[in-house]
Amino acid sequence: MFISMFNAVESGIIFAIMALGVYLSFRILDFPDLTVDGSFVTGAAVSALLIVNGMPTGLAILAALLAGFLAGSITGLLNTKGKVNPLLSGILMMTALYSINLRIMGQSNIPLLNQETFFTQLRSIFESLGIDRAFDQGLTALGIENLPSTYSALLIMLIVTFIIKFITDYFLKTEVGLALRAIGDNEQMIRSFSANTDHLKVLGLGVSNGLVALAGGLYAQFTGFSDLNMGIGMIVIGLASVIIGESIIGTKTIGRTTLAVVVGAVIYRIVITLAIRSDFLDNGDTKLITALLVVLALVVPKVVETVKESSRKRKKRQALNQQVRRGA
């Protein structure tokens, strides 16, 4: 139990970077960008290819980010310069990326099993510093038997993801960031304040898919392979993370909303893991569970709100009735 929860949080925190990217397009730009399914794999493909060719792991991750930025920018150009409908721009780019990803990898799967990756490097650092051993002892003392092989991935990814979260928060409060946020809210207004909405959309979609591909690049190194089909349904996972997080944590400020997205991504992984562990559900059901999760996260808060509101009104009526009776 502990080990599978641990693994869920571990991959959830990597997927949180992807979810932050989806948040940028879906919420900030109000642009339902399906490029994500393709750009996640592009990130994984670029990062795997560079590692197999002996490049430094950090460089492979950076290249993944740039490749994703490029893919997102093209979606943006299709929409702004080509006047193609947003949904269709994303679908076209996603379809094109499938072939491009195959070209990048040269085959449908690149295994990284015996390669040095960012995560194997972290692991050896943690081992040489004795950090893993210290955690092992701590957890054994708590009576947990089945221990994870390393804590490095979780701890470092927590730091990396939160650094990205804080950079995003800062960016969305800069002059450029404010203009970007206004696009998804009131495009006519931001144009009347001299912002070039075309350029901003291209930039926003670039950054969004850059983050998605960064997550893809990290995930490939984390799991030890890149696969042509690993991006299928990624957009829905991203949306699920955003929506679940928002309904639990709230959206009062930008910082809180991005925190919600990160937490949402982790919760999503935990729920999926729990569901698959149950006796009557298996791996093939994850998409159904994902869809149900999103529906729940969308519907439940509305129902709760309605119930709260009607009980508030009932109380108010009762109080008024009592007053009237007392007066009479």
Binding site: Y170, F171, K173, T174, E175, V176, G177, L178, A179, S194, A195
Partner: peptide
């Protein structure tokens, strides 16, 4: 009437 930068708004 200015150029938007990456400084806080």
């Amino acid at each position: 009437n200015k150029t938007r930068t990456l400084k806080p708004g």
